[in-house]
Design a protein around this nucleic acid. Structure first.
Lengths: 215, 215
DNA sequence: GGCGTTAGTATTGTCGACAATCTACCTATT
DNA sequence: AATAGGTAGATTGTCGACAATACTAACGCC
């Protein structure tokens, strides 16, 4: 059991705003290219424009929003080049995460990831569910590396990934292939086979990019 | 010659504030653990607290500042664990950058980097200068990959790197070794030898970490 | 003497209002 | 008819003031 007595970290309002906005962008409530009207958003969140703007600045720093002076903030739209760059960055982070996992307790980590793959296999037939579990797999992969920096950066790219999926209404072709790819990857981690993990990850990312870009 | 007529991108005030703060942190004007008093900083920058706070939120998102509710924002202090994590992230980014460079025009990139190494060799004897050129080398390495995301993330870690150097007053032992390491790396890039580049980069980062942590 | 309580002070968090700027539309002129 | 100029509306950028919260220190109580 975990202790109930722990530092009670109250999140700041800008941080909450940033999270909510990130979710809205991820799930397509704020579409690529859309402008974020301050007055309207402030009303919807029930805060004044000050804290709202502070939250939006965070997403600007993350690269999820772009600022045009005296015009406002807009959701980035993911051109093919942007998608390629995003996956380049994701690959960099996940490779580093995998490398650190393999240098540590890779067996426990592998087991956890295999459990997620099982859930993915069970959800086969429901493309949306498979997609969610796919993302959960990669999120967990990075978390298991216990690196604050890798995790923080990865969160941004996961948002962008979700954005792409929603924007393109990606038809998850051949979900059995996807389940297989993830299982192989998890098994390689379970076995601590660093080089294999690395190759699989890179191939996996390449697949994803081509799937999204040549849709 | 480059055209003079180009979209004149006026930076927003929060963005300028963020840059200035980043520099202040990098160069030790704001020391690790120090609190950023809003009223005082706003006065010094000549802006009101609103834009200042927005700029500070950006650095919070970057992880350079930590927020404690109702207490303020503080500069992170780099524990040995933090340093290790930072170099893990830097390594992830620079490896990805190098990989992309080698997949492109690695000869031009290698030449550019070798030129920087020459400058470093010329500055030998002046540890501070060598340190600056060292950082410039890595900055350019990432820029040459032409990846907006890698560059953006790397900027944060360069700031943290500078922070460490200033905090620890690092005595750059054996600068001829450092020049050599960078030259070998640049030559490997010039030759397009991906595997060698990868190995050299990882070794280089490991060296840096142990140098900083076991000071 | 140690602990809990209570002002006092300083700092942050939040808000509403004003100023600056841009877009869109309309008008007048060539 | 097309372009320059001007005006109105809306939105962002900025500021100053107020409210809420946490630290400091002095005081009283057990």
């Amino acid at each position: 059991m975990t202790s109930f007595i722990e530092p009670l970290a109250q999140e700041s309002t800008p941080s909450i705003v940033a999270d909510k906005l990130r979710q809205a962008i991820a799930h397509g409530e704020l579409k690529p290219g859309a402008q974020l009207g301050e007055a309207e958003l402030a009303r919807k969140f029930g805060v004044s424009r000050g804290p709202l703007r502070e939250g939006m600045q965070r997403l600007t720093q993350e690269g999820l929003l772009v600022s045009i002076r005296n015009r406002g903030l807009f959701v980035i739209d993911m051109t093919p080049d942007e998608i390629r760059d995003m996956y380049l960055a994701r690959e960099a982070i996940e490779r580093a995460a995998a490398r650190k996992i393999v240098a540590g307790d890779y067996e426990a980590a592998g087991d956890e990831l295999l459990a997620i793959v099982d859930k993915m296999a069970a959800a086969e037939g429901d493309p949306a569910a498979v997609g969610e579990i796919d993302i959960a797999f990669h999120e967990r992969l990075v978390e298991l590396a216990h690196s604050p920096r890798l995790s923080r950066m990865h969160k941004t790219f996961i948002t962008e990934t979700r954005m792409c999926i929603h924007a393109l209404e990606e038809t998850y072709s051949a979900s059995e292939v996807r389940v297989g790819e993830h299982r192989t990857l998890a098994q390689a981690i379970r076995a601590g086979d660093h080089l294999h993990v690395d190759d699989l990850l890179m191939a996996h990312m390449d697949d994803a990019v081509t799937r999204l870009v040549n849709r």
